[in-house]
Design a protein around this nucleic acid. Structure first.
Lengths: 162, 162
DNA sequence: CTTGACCTTGGAGCAACTACAGGGTGTGTA
DNA sequence: TACACACCCTGTAGTTGCTCCAAGGTCAAG
């Protein structure tokens, strides 16, 4: 019982901001650590492991709620793992869908950027013209060059549901 | 002056949620429309055009702040357009960077998913083993198969700065 | 005995919406 | 005329995953 780390050390060894660690604790992802006499958080190796696990999952872009579920499986190894597979597959489709629209997006932006070559006034700027035309539904360079999708997908910042 | 639309119509014809329209107004992206005697918002064709412009830019995943700047160029066509080019280029690099890490991510998830084949208990689940191993820094299928990046990039939900 | 690095809590703020409560308006129909 | 119902209004709070801040406690070195 000498390996107890304080939050700063844990942050250092995992590369995680201490505010983020406290946030994980607050939201129940990371277990409440012991406290030393002065009230400081005292972490053991199990916390380091768990935090690394969380970060690895986050690097896979999984939502915290999913990570929480995975952690439950880790805690409870007797449970049926069907859910895990499901969870990863869902994440994979999310990523693939996003990837697809990102590719279209890149094409469009590239086309757009190519329509502005030199310094001139905004009224002569190809980019601006393209954007305005696009808004009016006319063919624009970005749509001409785009693979198939007319508009990749309406902003889709709704990863937090569905 | 009979083409005035109410918010519902504008939403319908652009495919934008009315809450979102009001949000755009509140944050200054969309100009305050006239109000009819009953206090309802009365939009003209210029609003429709502007809103379409915004949505097209959002479909290109541009942050609202950037769109605001673009709109200023639209309003003020005499300005030098150097900034526009810059803006699009920045957006393009953002997208490309994200694309790159998403590709690595897809690889990793694919590898992960392949390590779970049938129904069994969590303690025997390949996915879970891989994840735990990965967290411990050991080689795991996802890292073995990944192209170059060990970890694609720490969550990087910090697009709102840098 | 003060400086400085570290730790504590609670709360606010970021993007870009989304949802809701609690109310007003306006049209169609019984 | 009464009522339902679709639409509109405002304002506020919630979402995700952090990030930052203020105001203060702890502890070792100089």
């Amino acid at each position: 019982m000498k390996s107890a780390m304080r939050i700063g050390e844990l942050g250092q060894s995992t590369g995680v901001d201490i505010e983020t660690i406290r946030y994980y604790e607050k939201t129940g992802l990371l277990k409440n650590p012991e406290r030393s006499s002065n009230g400081y958080r005292a972490y053991g190796p199990e916390h380091l492991e768990r935090l690394s696990f969380i970060r690895h999952c986050r690097a896979l872009d999984m939502p915290l709620a999913d990570i929480k579920r995975l952690l439950e499986f880790v805690e409870n190894p007797a449970a049926d793992c069907g859910g895990i597979d499901q969870l990863i597959s869902t994440q994979l489709s999310r990523v693939r869908a996003r990837l697809k629209s990102m590719r279209a997006l890149e094409q469009q932006l590239t086309a757009l950027r190519n329509s502005c070559d030199t310094n001139h006034s905004a009224s002569e700027c190809g980019i601006l013209h393209e954007l305005v035309a696009a808004a009016q539904g006319e063919t624009c360079a970005c749509h001409r060059n785009a693979p198939s999708a007319t508009t990749p997908d309406p902003p889709s910042d709704k990863r937090h549901k569905e």
